[in-house]
Design a protein around this nucleic acid. Sequence first.
DNA 1: CTACGTTTGGAATATTCGTTCCGAATAATT
DNA 2: AATTATTCGGAACGAATATTCCAAACGTAG
Lengths: 193, 193
Amino acid sequence: MPKVKQFNKEKVLEAASTIFHQKGYNGTSIDEILKATGLSRSSLYDSFQDKHNLYLQSLEFYKKASDDSMAVVDQKSLNGLEKIEYLFKEVVNHLVKHPDDNGCLMVNAAAEMSKHCDKTSQVICNNKENVQELFAGWLAEAQAGKVLVLSKSPKSYSSFLFNTLCGLKVMSQSGAGKNELTNVVKVALDALN
Amino acid sequence: MPKVKQFNKEKVLEAASTIFHQKGYNGTSIDEILKATGLSRSSLYDSFQDKHNLYLQSLEFYKKASDDSMAVVDQKSLNGLEKIEYLFKEVVNHLVKHPDDNGCLMVNAAAEMSKHCDKTSQVICNNKENVQELFAGWLAEAQAGKVLVLSKSPKSYSSFLFNTLCGLKVMSQSGAGKNELTNVVKVALDALN
DNA sequence: CTACGTTTGGAATATTCGTTCCGAATAATT
DNA sequence: AATTATTCGGAACGAATATTCCAAACGTAG
């Protein structure tokens, strides 16, 4: 039967999410996408419908990759508090190590698109809920293991931790260096008591 | 002598910063700017050079307005901690009351432009430093007045507070409602002890 | 009231944008 | 090898983009 596709959808979405990450939705042209992905114009429209749809799929790819890397942390043999510490350390390291990466695609999408595209805001919303649930689980685990005594509900703290995470991603775009980000994490995690 | 300008530069910058705030730099066309500001095409290029320059001036206008509103808080007869509480309450109220405002222009600019425009990142950086200094002052004031006993330096906490502030502005774009934002503020301010 | 210098509206430009389209290339099945 | 369904390269399209330009409108100063 037919000729088989000559590109790998995952690779394409990875490249697309990278360039959307760097330049935003409105800042990225189709030509740049073609160059970054190696796709031909027709293949892009055949397989991804249009730019907007590709953006959505790139966002979901990015979210999945982020979910996966959090799951790796989740499966480490650490207690809940250590998992939180580990994750934040990892985020800070990534932010300072990849300065050209332009922060976080999810945060950038929230800033650029959430008020103009329901589907985008849905992905962003989902991501927020997922991360917060993970945090809440880790907090409950830490509390159950007596490594942490919380004076408020895990849900309160998981909102707070997610807020801290979002803040870090903005601050890394605002001139904050590793020392300052590390310091913010320290103060924030000290609040868990 | 010559015909006098028929527009008010401040009003123009306010309108421009509003539309850049709503749609971003790349998402806003010249035609939309003309409609929003009431300017004619030639007046825009005569008085503001080009779109990019207008964006920069709009950013600075926005920063100045933000500075002014923080100065108002600063001049209230409140102690340092109360000023912090007041400001955060005000920010949360504004975010939930103006959902179409698209969060915060400074945060959105950081996400969209900081890696692509040195002048933009300079404004963002300045803003960060100014706000943190204000926070540090309030914290010192609170500490001097014995309303607060800090276990770390005011500078540490001012970074943390600024991080919390940035986080709020992203979370309000990610589906968080007033309850959740208020809760985040509560947890964050409880960390000052 | 005239004359000058500036502002201003809108036509014009060249470029870039996202998208469509079609014929040639392709590879799995018959 | 012939058939077939699909991919793919690139030309082509119209709409939208940022910017330039000029003649007309205009207010101020003499």
